[in-house]
Every structure is written in C-alpha cells, then in structure tokens.
Simulated scan of single mutants.
Amino acid sequence: MKYETEEYWNGLVRMSLSRFFILRVLCCRSLHGYEITKEVAALTEGCCAPTEGGLYPVLREFEENGLVTCVTELNGKRERKVYSLTEKGTRAYETASKAWMKAAEYILAEVSRPGL
C-alpha cells in the first residue's frame, strides 16, 4: 500500500534531491547549517528543505568524503560551524547536475506520454 501513496514517493525524491540542493547552495557561498536549510527551502519553495536531523548527517558524510570543509566560527559567544564546498564538492555537484538533468528528461518524457 505504501507504494501507492504520494508521501512514499515524495520522501524518496526529497531525500535524494536535498543532497543535491545542499551542494547547490554551497556552490554560491559558505554557510552554517541553519542558513543551508533556509537557502534550500527558499530555492525549492519548501519541497526539499532538509530537517536539522537530516542535514547534519549529510554534511558529516560530505565532510568525510572531502566534498565540504567545516570551520568553527565564533558569533558573539556562540560557536557555529560554517561549511564550504571543496573543488571535489564542486565536481560532485556538476556530476549530480548532469545525472538529475538526464533523469528529469526521462521522467518528463514518460509522464507526458499518452495512455497512462
């Protein structure tokens, strides 16, 4: 039954796309976690905004794999981690862009076909 629900498919799409959009917003400038979430939400009109619980494991994975770097900055008395895209992260974003464009072409072609 779950395969027939929009929630199931939206969850799968959003989970994958949020990774893409995290890289996308970091292409423009270095950001801390809350800013990343807000930028992705604005860019996708809320469709793919990662939650705090979903964002930091992805950022940690990206950091472990050399896609982002993290620097701790002092903001007043608070510390916050600021994430920046590396050259490897930029290449990963470019590769992901090509892959998503290809997938989008196929999806658009299929959903516009008569007979469904």
Rank of each mutant, 00 (worst) to 15 (best):
residue 2 K to T: 08
residue 7 E to Y: 11
residue 9 W to L: 13
residue 9 W to E: 06
residue 10 N to Q: 13
residue 12 L to H: 12
residue 13 V to M: 14
residue 13 V to I: 15
residue 14 R to Y: 11
residue 14 R to D: 11
residue 15 M to K: 15
residue 17 L to G: 07
residue 21 F to V: 00
residue 21 F to N: 01
residue 22 I to Q: 02
residue 23 L to D: 04
residue 24 R to P: 00
residue 25 V to H: 10
residue 26 L to K: 05
residue 26 L to D: 05
residue 29 R to Q: 15
residue 29 R to H: 05
residue 33 G to T: 05
residue 33 G to H: 06
residue 34 Y to H: 14
residue 34 Y to E: 14
residue 35 E to N: 07
residue 35 E to R: 09
residue 35 E to T: 02
residue 35 E to A: 13
residue 36 I to A: 06
residue 36 I to K: 04
residue 36 I to V: 15
residue 36 I to D: 00
residue 37 T to W: 01
residue 37 T to F: 01
residue 37 T to E: 14
residue 38 K to Q: 15
residue 39 E to V: 02
residue 39 E to F: 07
residue 39 E to P: 00
residue 40 V to G: 03
residue 40 V to E: 04
residue 44 T to P: 01
residue 44 T to F: 10
residue 45 E to Y: 02
residue 46 G to P: 05
residue 47 C to Q: 07
residue 48 C to R: 00
residue 48 C to S: 06
residue 48 C to D: 12
residue 48 C to P: 03
residue 51 T to W: 12
residue 51 T to I: 06
residue 51 T to S: 15
residue 52 E to I: 08
residue 52 E to S: 13
residue 52 E to Y: 13
residue 54 G to T: 10
residue 55 L to C: 10
residue 56 Y to N: 07
residue 57 P to Y: 12
residue 57 P to L: 09
residue 58 V to K: 09
residue 59 L to I: 06
residue 59 L to V: 04
residue 60 R to F: 12
residue 62 F to W: 05
residue 63 E to K: 15
residue 63 E to V: 00
residue 63 E to L: 04
residue 64 E to A: 14
residue 65 N to S: 09
residue 65 N to D: 14
residue 66 G to Q: 07
residue 67 L to G: 00
residue 69 T to E: 14
residue 69 T to N: 13
residue 72 T to H: 05
residue 74 L to E: 09
residue 77 K to N: 12
residue 77 K to C: 04
residue 77 K to G: 09
residue 78 R to Q: 13
residue 80 R to C: 05
residue 81 K to L: 07
residue 82 V to G: 02
residue 83 Y to P: 01
residue 84 S to E: 11
residue 85 L to R: 01
residue 85 L to M: 09
residue 86 T to N: 05
residue 86 T to M: 08
residue 87 E to I: 02
residue 87 E to C: 02
residue 88 K to L: 10
residue 89 G to C: 10
residue 90 T to A: 14
residue 91 R to V: 06
residue 91 R to E: 15
residue 93 Y to C: 03
residue 94 E to P: 00
residue 95 T to P: 00
residue 97 S to Q: 14
residue 98 K to Q: 12
residue 98 K to N: 06
residue 98 K to A: 15
residue 100 W to C: 09
residue 100 W to H: 08
residue 101 M to K: 12
residue 104 A to M: 08
residue 108 L to A: 09
residue 108 L to V: 03
residue 109 A to G: 01
residue 109 A to W: 00
residue 109 A to C: 02
residue 110 E to S: 03
residue 111 V to A: 04
residue 112 S to D: 01
residue 113 R to V: 01
